[in-house]
């Protein structure tokens, strides 16, 4: 099953890449607008060989991780607070909804103005995206705590702080973790969009530079590097998630032995 899926995936990829390559070579589509896979591969190889890509990758990774960490920590803390303090939650609810309704791209120029062309403005943009994902998931996770488990922990003598430690946080953890994979994607978007709109380094900057001179090969090469970058980050997060949530039953395996 797994091998078959892998086979078809490889086949599909090969089909698309070859189709693209030959469409250009046979003159069906214009290489100026579409470039071609062999050129893109050569460009990526060149970037890594000359080492010029590493600086850009490093900056984007750094921005992504900072936005991810800061946004998640703020989101989780706010989510915990508002889920456990109904009055504060009721007061802040319209403000949070209003803030979340702002299209973040609009904020990018303002952040550039406030924080400059460097890393800080990209991190700020990423944080505005990541924060809400972490916040809403934590809030929901706390609200969905099993009332029987909660009552049981209280009967066993848990204080407020102990309930947080032993019940609320672990219960919300599965929600928080499922939000992490969405969050890392948003953090990348924040970093790249920020770089694209104004920066001196990073993958977004690289793509925007290529676009500026109608270098479609450079644009596609940047996109490929970015896609691989995101897949690797997502894989890393899912590994961490699997390690930390060992207690969770695998879907369809509820019930266990005897």
């Amino acid at each position: 099953m797994r091998a078959r899926v892998r086979f078809f995936q490889a086949f599909l990829l090969l089909f698309l890449v070859l189709g693209w390559e030959f469409s250009v070579r046979l003159g069906w589509v214009d290489a100026f607008f579409f470039s071609k896979p062999s050129d893109i591969a050569a460009r990526i190889f060149e970037w890594f060989k000359s080492g010029e890509i590493y600086g850009h990758l490093w900056i984007t990774l750094w921005e992504t991780l900072l936005a991810f960490l800061i946004g998640t920590v703020f989101g989780v803390v706010m989510g915990l607070w508002l889920a456990l303090a109904p009055t504060a939650s009721a007061v802040l609810d319209p403000f949070i909804k209003a803030l979340n309704s702002i299209p973040r791209v609009i904020l990018a120029p303002i952040f550039t103005l406030w924080f400059g062309l460097g890393v800080a403005s990209k991190v700020a943009l990423g944080v505005t995206l990541v924060f809400f994902v972490a916040f809403f998931n934590t809030y929901q996770g706390i609200k969905e705590v099993n009332p029987v488990v909660l009552a049981n922990a209280r009967m066993l003598g848990a204080s407020g702080r102990q309930l947080l430690q032993h019940v609320y946080l672990p219960s919300a953890a599965s929600w928080i973790f499922s939000s992490l994979r969405t969050s890392i994607g948003f953090a990348v978007i924040g970093a790249v969009v920020g770089e694209y709109l104004g920066a001196a380094k990073g993958l977004g900057y690289l793509i925007s530079q290529a676009e500026g001179v109608f270098d479609t090969t450079g644009v596609f090469a940047g996109m490929v590097v970015l896609a691989v970058f995101v897949v690797l980050l997502d894989w890393a997060v899912s590994r961490v998630e699997a390690r930390l949530l060992v207690w969770r039953p695998e879907p369809g395996r509820e019930g266990g032995t005897v």
Binding site: V149, A151, M155, L156, A173
Partner: peptide, 27 residues
């Protein structure tokens, strides 16, 4: 009082041992 609930009341993120020792840990 100790309370044995009708529904599942164990903490799903703790092992059997972790669940049983919970009350003592809380104290």
């Amino acid at each position: 009082a100790g309370y044995l609930f009708q529904a599942d009341s164990l903490l799903p993120w703790k092992t059997a041992l972790g669940n049983v020792m919970l009350g003592l840990v809380l104290r």
